[in-house]
Design a binder for these strands. Structure first.
Length: 814
RNA sequence: GCCCGGGUGGCGAAACCGGCAGACGCAAAGGACUUAAAAUCCUUUUCCCGGCAACGGGAGUGCGGGUUCAAGUCCCGCCCCGGGCACCA
């Protein structure tokens, strides 16, 4: 017999060619089959696929192929998150134009994806740096403006010196830039555009519970809840003694208000300027700068007394007004009442500046501590609180809110940690913001008919200072759309997270020239049935996308409230050293090398086998060889048994092999339908092959004719190339992913006899093989008679027997 | 500090509803085939104790308690690792 050789290159290239020319992976718009829309997060075209991509896309591809085989009308697109900073860096370092660099990267990565055999419908491809795409970013911007959801303001913003641009709050990681993890962000005061994501704070939070709970990973939901940071409390106006001017504070503990001993304003607070004298103002300025430079971490608390006093509206107490560096301007009202006895931060501050500490809450089960050594932060019973004394904290908050509202100096209030999304970037390679600044008319939106505002290609990129767009007169110098007077075009571009907030809609109508997409075109497909990507986007991309969908619903473009019905976040691929793969650490593995040495199928099998998809996955080179061996064994087994002579038939061998087959179908099907633990699916296929090889000599032709096609079909979602090749060798027609997924027969999958474990006092002492469905009494009798258990029963009394039918007998002895 | 995950052999892992802990794979060791090597195939591999051996006994899922006939799985209290948030009033 000639040796059978698994030549992965020949097989994979052959099928790649065939599948490409066939244009296979279209969803049929007219199909009556149920739809299934699966999207994997689109990559930034950095130049080459990395293992993280391969893992993400292998998971999505297995799912897409399986759903096809289950008869669904599957839509499975891919695109490119093509704007962004690395293109500009490449321009500087390699003297290549960002567009040219980006497009050549896309071509290369697309080639790699095709080589991997991912089943994408490339006719739906979306590239976000193309005017036909980004013009709709601009259109959305105009819609935001119309609805009052876009505004411009001067604010202290996170500035990354490395990127030379501002960052949104979501893009700051531990005080550093999310791209440059060792570069602390600075605070700079810059005027820029914001989108009012806070207008949706309540709904974004509510739908986590109402729409996403159980369908998105708990981890992601809790991070988003945390990020939105809803906080229930009260707003209370204290009035300045001198002028009567109100100072509004936000507190969650209005029940402690009788213990307030001062007011503290953020150094940026508008009142701070008024109340401070000249040296005080200088000090406040220093505070702001110091905080901006230090970034995060522990700043020593510092305060400046203003010399002014404010009056506590509940008890008319005179409270000194301070400026404090630990009070944040952009949370709550930028001013707090300090209650040192019941808040650790206030305690620290007041001790430092020798301000009084007035305890007003006593523990439910103790006395009021007149000289506390630390703040008592729990709820309790009010004391020294006038008519409110004796109430519990909870009751007091309700009653005192009512009183404040009745008397007009406050009310119950809700505050969010979430801030508006700053979308301006002082960079070149992004979507131009469609606004014109006119000396007479102010910021004027570019009329819709003039869209897109094309990003000029002829620019000089230095990476220093301001946006290169400032140096392009033909871009900057325009007429005001309102008064036709000379005006300047906005030179900031949009955050690239705008691009990725809605691309999955565009996939459903990618050629539309008159709208981002038509309502009807997407109605059928949304929400996405399955969205798959890395957990790194838990807040950034996934929160923005949810915001965008709600906004698009409100302007009548979509009717769904959430973009994705189900979200799956895969784990990271770790290097051999157990840390995340990264170029700077030099622990990366290039998929291209893997493909060359072992083939795309092996590569896919490996990333799916090494760990369950949601867990981080350590890289282990030698384990790859194991997957390759498995494919070789499958290949040889199938080809060896293609044309069996009618072998000496052994019904028992057939029975065992078919039983294993149907057990495997059941296992793999359940994995797809439930947890996507493809590592156990592949293990099951390996077990099947092991059984088949054991029984090989005695299998009948009839049995192999049932087994081989089913085995090949089950391999299809994981290792599509080898599956296609073997399918053809079996003499079958049509692509594997369009075949019907094998069905299992419970009768065939069932074992002949149940193996009953016999325990004595919970320890396994013997095993019995009995027919299924034996009665409890019977099982107990058999267990008692089992010779293996006898020694453990001798001289003891059986007090009880627990019988689990078809599984186990536990004899309890004394 | 608060909120999520997680901790099982030399390694990646499995055990899905409380019922045989370690499936499957890697690595390692031994053997077959070979002039030899690679490849392939077979065997062994959680730890400890006893036995020439087939085998037998005990312990064991981060630690300490508990519930239960029975706990990797449930409950209580800790420890460690990873991630998120963090002067958010």
């Amino acid at each position: 017999m000639p040796e059978i050789v698994y030549d992965h290159n020949a097989i994979e290239l052959k099928w790649q060619r065939r599948n490409e020319s066939a244009g296979l992976y279209h969803a049929d718009p007219d199909s009556p089959a149920p739809k299934y829309y699966v999207v994997e997060m689109l990559p930034y075209p950095s130049g080459r696929l990395h293992m993280g991509h391969v893992r993400n896309y292998a998971i999505g591809d297995a799912l897409a192929r399986y759903m096809w085989m289950r008869g669904y009308n599957v839509r499975h697109p891919m695109g490119w998150d093509a704007f962004g900073l690395p293109a500009e860096n490449a321009a500087i370092q390699r003297n290549r134009h960002p567009r040219e660099w980006t497009l050549s990267n896309i071509a290369e990565m697309k080639r790699q994806m095709k080589r991997m055999g991912f089943a994408y419908d490339w006719s739906l491809e979306v590239t976000t740096c193309e005017p036909e795409y980004y013009r709709w970013n601009q259109w959305f911007f105009l819609k935001m403006l119309e609805r009052g959801l876009a505004y411009r303001k001067k604010a202290l913003l996170n500035w990354c010196p490395e990127c030379a641009t501002v960052l949104a709050n979501e893009q700051v990681v531990e005080g550093c830039c999310w791209r440059h993890e060792s570069t602390p962000v600075q605070q700079r005061e810059i005027e820029q555009w914001f989108w009012k994501i806070t207008a949706y704070a309540e709904e974004l939070l509510r739908d986590i519970d109402e729409k996403l709970e159980g369908k998105w990973p708990e981890r992601v939901l809790s991070m988003q809840r945390n990020w939105i940071g809803r906080s229930e409390g009260s707003e209370v106006d204290f009035h300045l003694e001198a002028t009567g001017e109100p100072v509004r504070v936000f507190t969650t503990r209005i029940d402690t208000i009788y213990g307030a001993t001062c007011l503290i304003l953020a150094p940026e607070h508008p009142l701070a300027q008024k109340l401070l004298d000249e040296p005080g103002r200088a000090k406040a300025k220093q505070m702001i700068d110091a905080r901006a430079q230090k970034g995060p971490g522990d700043i020593e608390k510092e305060g400046i007394p203003t010399g002014s006093y404010a009056v506590n509206p509940f008890n008319q107490a005179r409270l000194p007004v301070w400026i404090g560096n630990f009070v944040l301007m952009d949370y709550g009202t930028g001013a707090i009442m300090a209650v040192p006895a019941h808040d650790p931060r206030d305690f620290e501050f007041c001790r430092q500046y020798k301000l009084p500490v007035i305890p007003v809450i006593r523990p439910l089960d103790g006395e009021l501590d007149a000289n506390p050594k630390a703040a008592f932060t729990e709820d309790g019973i009010l004391e020294n609180s006038g008519e409110f004394s004796g109430l519990t904290s909870g009751e007091a908050r309700r009653v005192m809110n009512e009183r404040a509202e009745r008397d007009g100096f406050g009310k119950a209030a809700i505050t969010y940690r979430l801030k508006d999304w700053g979308i301006s970037r002082q960079r070149y390679w992004g979507t131009p913001i469609p606004v014109i600044h006119c000396p007479g008319c102010g910021a004027v939106p570019v009329p819709e008919k003039d869209l897109p505002v094309i990003l000029p290609l002829d620019v000089k990129i230095t990476g220093k200072g301001r946006s290169p767009l400032e140096e392009v007169p033909s871009f900057v110098n325009v007429k005001c759309p309102k008064c036709s007077g000379p005006a300047r075009r906005e030179t900031d571009t949009m955050d690239t997270f705008v691009d990725s907030s809605w691309y999955f809609y565009r996939y459903c109508d990618p050629q539309n020239h008159s709208a981002p997409f038509h309502r009807q075109a997407i109605a059928k497909w949304f929400p996405m049935d399955q969205y798959i990507g890395g957990v790194t986007h838990a807040i950034l991309h996934l929160l923005y996308s949810r915001f965008f969908t709600k906004f698009m619903r409100d302007i009548g473009l979509v009717s769904n409230d959430e973009p994705a019905a189900n979200l799956f976040t895969q784990g990271m691929v770790l290097g051999a050293d157990g840390t995340a793969m990264s170029k700077s650490k030099g622990n990366t593995v290039d998929p291209e090398e893997m493909i060359a040495r072992y083939g795309a199928d092996t590569c896919r099998l490996f990333v799916l086998f090494a760990a369950p998809p949601e867990k981080d996955m350590p890289w282990n080179e030698s384990s790859v060889a194991g997957q390759r061996r498995f494919l070789e064994r499958v290949f040889r087994f199938v080809l060896r048994n293609l044309h069996r002579a009618a072998a000496p038939s052994d019904p028992a061998a057939d029975r065992r092999a078919l039983r294993k087959l149907h057990q495997t179908i059941r296992k793999v099907t359940e994995d797809f339908n439930n947890r996507w633990h493809f590592n156990t699916s592949i293990a099951a296929l390996m077990e099947l092959l092991n059984t088949l090889q054991e029984e090989e000599a005695n299998l009948s032709r009839e049995a192999t004719e049932q087994i081989l096609p089913a085995l090949v079909l089950m391999l299809g979602p994981f290792a599509p190339y080898i599956a296609e090749e073997l399918w053809e060798q079996l003499g079958r027609q049509g692509p594997v992913f369009r075949q019907q997924w094998p069905r299992y027969d419970p009768e065939l999958a069932r074992e002949d006899r149940a193996e009953i474990v016999v325990q004595v006092n919970g320890k396994v002492r013997g095993r019995l093989a009995v027919p299924f469905g034996a009665s409890q009494q019977e099982l107990e009798k058999l267990a008692l008679a089992d010779p293996k258990t006898q020694p453990f029963l001798a001289g003891r009394q059986v007090v009880k027997a627990i019988v689990v039918p078809d599984k186990l007998v536990n004899l309890v002895v004394k």
